[in-house]
Design a protein around this nucleic acid. Sequence first.
DNA 1: CACAGCACTGAACGGTGTTCAATAGATTTT
DNA 2: AAAATCTATTGAACACCGTTCAGTGCTGTG
Lengths: 200, 200
Amino acid sequence: MARRSDHSREELREMALTAAEKIVVEQGYEGLSARKVAAQIGYTVGTLYLVFENIDDLILQINARTLDRLHARMTQPHANSIDPRDYLVQLGQAYIRFADEDPHRWAMVFEHRLAEDRSLPAWYQEKVARMFAMVEQGLQPLAGRHSQDDVLQASRALWGGVHGICILALSDNLGVAGVDSVQQLTESLIRNYLKGFTGD
Amino acid sequence: MARRSDHSREELREMALTAAEKIVVEQGYEGLSARKVAAQIGYTVGTLYLVFENIDDLILQINARTLDRLHARMTQPHANSIDPRDYLVQLGQAYIRFADEDPHRWAMVFEHRLAEDRSLPAWYQEKVARMFAMVEQGLQPLAGRHSQDDVLQASRALWGGVHGICILALSDNLGVAGVDSVQQLTESLIRNYLKGFTGD
DNA sequence: CACAGCACTGAACGGTGTTCAATAGATTTT
DNA sequence: AAAATCTATTGAACACCGTTCAGTGCTGTG
């Protein structure tokens, strides 16, 4: 029996999340289970429920971390001093690279569906919004005479597009092998879309 | 106990698939279970395993039917006698409409992941390829001086894009409410991409 | 040193996919 | 018609899943 107060709630939470992430990275979404996480950190399943509302909650916390990692990756390209088109391509490619390097972690963000009725908490939606905002800002210099609404719509279409390519590629539904081809597809999508958007 | 030979293997298979589809349509992927399907058709779970290899197999069969339905929907717009651009937009919108009208059925095609190592059977991949082929053909009239490879790549980028918008929209990650807005996004993606692709 | 409080346990519940010895109903043989 | 054979179907069993909560035993307090 793990001693009482060996670890604070916060420590427990941290240990559990780290252990769970390890399982996900190695075995994917399907490989994750409350009992496995508990065993990894030397506690029993009941304890997990003192720290997390339920398994969905735990998954959401991991996905939040994944979104943070992804965001960090996408902050590496710098908007200043390069062509806006190149910047957006770099954003897209950072996204693809992230998904390729850590497919299990990435996939869980999109494979995890919460119960039909329940919706994602605001703080989580915020993290998603933050990524769309990056695209929106990257698109801004190319706005020309487009309205703000147009830019918003374009950023969504564009990012949805990149995401779609990423999904299909990772599930082998694109008949495309290797990251390089996927990167090319992404670049094709972005550059052609932008050509259409800016109208030249 | 259901009488011996009340139904042929083929009838059993048909009954099971129909029952399973009903469950999926009503309750989604998560709501599906071998026992529920068996109960629906008046047999016990063991019998299902005489007809299907396992639950993944059953799901794959349903997904194959879904792909057929989707394909039928996408065959309704006619390539002849309209502008190729309009045709591709119609294809995209048929896709979105299908996903919107039957989200559970559609979602299962993409939510279902088979074990890491196993890959989709050839006859199934064929059905996926058939859909990409439609896009490729729709794109052909706009090929101009592009190589065949370019057209192939463009069709994948384009379709991946439509798919991505569809996914994000259905999981409420686009902050877009209502089918109409999604249709607009799709049209934006396709028309702008095509403008870039054809270069005018 | 006793005791109260509570961190933690782990068995229990109802679910899942999957297997396979046993059964019961149909068919064939006697 | 009865007996024997055959086999489609059963359903209990297994190992897992998420979740709950009465009980246990450690720990800080009085």
